[in-house]
Design a protein around this nucleic acid. Structure first.
Lengths: 244, 244
DNA sequence: TCAATGCAAGTGTGATCACAAATCAAATAA
DNA sequence: TTATTTGATTTGTGATCACACTTGCATTGA
């Protein structure tokens, strides 16, 4: 049916090419991805191809392909109008996302706990210090930095799980829960203390002891927090406004 | 039940639009998807945009967008040359895929086991009969029908798990393991008996009894089979040809 | 005043073109 | 004969255009 070009050597050593010319399409995709994980778009916000193309200083071509990719990983949602929007937050969706994250990220960290090298453990330990730095000058709450640091910490661990299948799934889950998390973090900051460092410390301790179960439990506690918080917030709002 | 009642409020009731004009892009995407799950492309096969566009009687436009989507869900692989191919089969990747499938599909069927309605259980029971039909005229082995029936059976169950997050992930996993499965089924047919019906019967029995753990175990046995079989086959081949 | 109609701007989709990079083949030189 | 180079073809990428559909607003009618 196809051309097939039966290559002579099977593993062409694909993973991460030595020469990686970046295409505009990839730049746009990564840009949108970063914005979504960081929660820069708000839930239910509608995105237009031409609008994004103008904002990103390119033509519509790379944008539509990037949007299509984000739609397939459920980071965006295609409406029947053919317009595209950030998925709205609902209670069911939040519970659904949290359950999936506990399942998959829990497995990933359990694998990583038995595989991380001393060098990798040192790396995540050093990340704990950054939380203290940030707490020191907490008078201005830098939500962007919190999000970035939290992401770097978790994915440093997940990368060590050694599964090329699980990691993209986790990325997709973060993409989907990005908007929720942002809302939750803002709510957190209003509510009081941001105790992420404590949870991360518990995670690091378990990993250093090669305690897979302990690491999984600590992770569950860490990622459940913003969800349960946001959940109670949403429920309160739902009780007030029954108009919709 | 559907009807959508186009309200301006937040939940626009997106899921499954009442009017679903099918775009060419979606047609191409579904076509390629079906071909991949069915294993119609062989591992390491290179696909070209213009080639597929000709084969599918359309321009390059919908094809490149469909390919981009399939690449993001790891159903296809982007080479540094910017060409696209079906990911090759390796032992590590197979183990990785199987572990992820056991984890996620196991969770999905455990959820489904407690949620399936009698009507849905009747549906999957009736599917068992089709295996007997097929066995009756087994002189010609209809691999396509086996693949289709197997897929229909599993996803009828997964749909009942009620998770809009897990199901797309399972689809992605099937997309990724499609080429492997096809190879395994062919090997199976050569080796002797195709005993899928037996495994499916065990699954149905557990679900009918609302036995979540039993259903999970039965599923693990079902989906592990082709992988372990293919694994031994690959190991034997690897022992012979160390040339590559 | 209010609802219906019609026009205009906006938007997604598919096709086509231009260009650069990669691939393949033949021809040339050692 | 073998290795290298050169030229033609193929291929992916980005831009632009044409068309259909939707949306929003102003006009028109009762």
């Amino acid at each position: 049916m196809q051309k097939a070009t039966a290559d002579k050597s099977d593993p062409i050593a694909a993973q991460l090419a030595p020469v990686g010319r970046e295409t505009v399409q990839d730049r746009v995709y990564l840009e949108l991805r970063r914005a979504l994980i960081g929660g820069l778009f708000e839930p239910s916000q509608v995105l237009t191809i031409r609008g994004l193309a103008d904002a990103l200083m390119t033509s519509t071509m790379p944008v539509r392909e990037a949007l299509g990719r984000l739609i397939t990983e459920k980071a965006l949602e295609a409406l029947p109008n053919r317009s595209v929007r950030v998925p709205p937050i609902t209670l069911e969706r939040m519970d659904d996302l949290l359950r999936a994250r506990i399942l998959i990220e829990g497995e990933a960290i359990a694998l990583a706990a038995t595989r991380m090298t001393p060098r990798q453990i040192t790396t995540i330990e050093s990340m704990l210090g950054e939380w203290d730095e940030m707490r020191a000058l907490k008078h201005k709450k830098d939500v962007d930095r919190e999000v970035t640091l939290n992401q770097a910490f978790h994915f440093e661990i997940y990368r060590a799980c050694g599964s090329a299948v699980l990691i993209p799934m986790i990325e997709s889950l973060w993409l989907q829960s990005g908007p929720c998390i942002r809302v939750a973090i803002y709510a957190f900051s209003d509510a009081g203390e941001v105790d992420t460092a404590h949870y991360h410390r518990t995670i690091v301790k378990a990993i250093a002891a090669q305690d897979a179960k302990g690491a999984r439990d600590a992770l569950v506690a860490d990622i459940s927090r913003p969800f349960t918080f946001l959940r109670s917030k949403l429920e309160a709002e739902a009780k007030k406004g029954q108009s919709a």
